[in-house]
Amino acid sequence: MEKDLVEYIAKSLVDDPNGVNVNMIEGEKSTILELRVSEGDIGKVIGKHGRIAKAIRTILSAAATKTGKRVVLEILD
């Protein structure tokens, strides 16, 4: 579910939706989501002073409220 969410947001923000890739590593208490985008799109998912990345993380933790599991988003370049 969280993987779909990150994919959806990232694809709406970038110029190259096909370059969006989310890898999910599921642990017992937390889930790590690794987001990769095309080289030129990195700034589009991070934003000035990390504003966009922060907004995505805020939305992710809201989505995780019901399941109670911690979700960590890592943006890889």
């Binding site: 934003g47 966009i52 907004a55 809201a62």
Partner: peptide, 13 residues
């Protein structure tokens, strides 16, 4: 804060 985040992303889109 979540509402703000939704609004921010929406405005970028």
């Amino acid at each position: 804060k979540t509402l703000e985040a939704i609004q921010l992303l929406t405005n970028i889109v």
